[in-house]
Amino acid sequence: MKITDIAALPVGENPHHVDARVAYDTEHAMAVVITLQPGEELKKHITPVDVFFYVLEGTGVVEIGDEEEVVGRDMLVESPAKIPHRWFNRSDTIFRVLVVKVPKPTKGTQIL
């Protein structure tokens, strides 16, 4: 059994310049916990694989393609491969989301 303390993981470098911690990384899948402070957002980007997001804490806005929705804790959002997407924290509290990429991408994320 392996148990990971997400809070103890280092913040990884990323093009969005936000708190992103790799929680799981194998040859088959990858999971990252992203924390957005009030007013922070991710740049619009495209991932080469399907992604799903599970909201852990707070309220945020997700934009996928031409759609934009407000989502909160315990909501799951699916984002198909190669569709532009991004996240916003327009609230006054922390917003945390688990990002799961399956299969693990072999190419990097494309910032738009």
Score class of each variant (00 low, 15 high):
Phe88Ser: 03
Leu98Thr: 08
Pro84Gly: 08
Phe95Asp: 04
Arg21Gln: 10
Gly65Gln: 12
Thr35Glu: 08
Glu69Asp: 06
Pro103Ile: 06
Met75Pro: 00
Gly60Tyr: 05
Asp50Gln: 10
Gly72Thr: 14
Ala7Asn: 15
Ile34Tyr: 09
Arg21Glu: 10
Phe95Trp: 04
His28Leu: 08
Glu13Gly: 09
Val99Cys: 04
Pro105Cys: 00
Val18Phe: 04
Pro38Trp: 11
Val32Leu: 00
Ala8Thr: 15
Thr4Gly: 03
Gln110Pro: 02
Asp50Met: 11
Tyr54Met: 09
Arg90Gly: 09
Lys2Met: 13
Ala8Lys: 15
Lys82Gln: 15
Val61Gln: 02
Glu27Ile: 12
Ala7Thr: 14
Arg90Val: 11
Ala20Arg: 13
Glu57Tyr: 11
Ala20Tyr: 00
Tyr54Ile: 10
Leu112Ala: 12
Leu42Met: 12
Ser91Gly: 07
Ile6Ser: 06
Val102Ser: 15
Asp5Lys: 09
Ile83Val: 14
Ala20Met: 13
Glu57Gly: 13
Val49Gly: 01
Ile34Thr: 12
Val99Ile: 11
Thr109Phe: 00
Val22Trp: 05
Asp92Ser: 13
Pro15Lys: 14
Val99Phe: 00
Lys104Arg: 13
Thr47Asn: 13
Asn89Asp: 00
Pro103Cys: 06
Gln37Lys: 15
Gly60Leu: 04
Ala7Met: 15
Asp92Arg: 06
His16Glu: 09
Thr59Ile: 14
Leu98Trp: 04
Ile6Asp: 10
Val51Ile: 14
Lys101Met: 00
Leu112Cys: 06
Ala20Phe: 00
Asp19Thr: 11
Ile111Thr: 02
Glu69Gln: 07
Thr59Asp: 12
Phe95Val: 07
Asn14Arg: 03
Pro103Tyr: 07
Pro10Trp: 03
Ile64Asn: 11
Ile111Asn: 08
Ile111Val: 11
Ala29Phe: 05
Ala81Trp: 06
Ile6Trp: 03
Ser91Glu: 11
Asp66Ile: 03
Val61Phe: 00
Leu76Arg: 11
Lys2Trp: 11
Gly60Arg: 01
Lys82Trp: 13
Phe53Leu: 10
Arg96Ser: 09
Leu112His: 04
Met30Asn: 13
Gly65Cys: 07
Lys44Met: 12
Asp50Asn: 15
Val32Cys: 00
Thr4Glu: 08
Val100Glu: 14
Ile46Val: 14
Val99Gln: 02
Gly60His: 06
Ile83Asp: 03
Phe53Met: 03
Leu36Ser: 02
Pro10Thr: 04
Lys82Asp: 15
Glu67Cys: 06
Glu40Tyr: 07
Ile34Asp: 06
Leu9Cys: 05
Glu57Trp: 05
Glu40Trp: 06
Ser91Trp: 02
Leu112Thr: 12
Ile64Met: 05
Pro10Gln: 04
Gly58Thr: 05
Pro15Gly: 10
Phe95Glu: 05
Gly65His: 07
Pro84Arg: 03
Ser79Cys: 13
Leu9Phe: 02
Val11Lys: 08
Arg96Ile: 04
Thr106Val: 06
Lys101Ile: 05
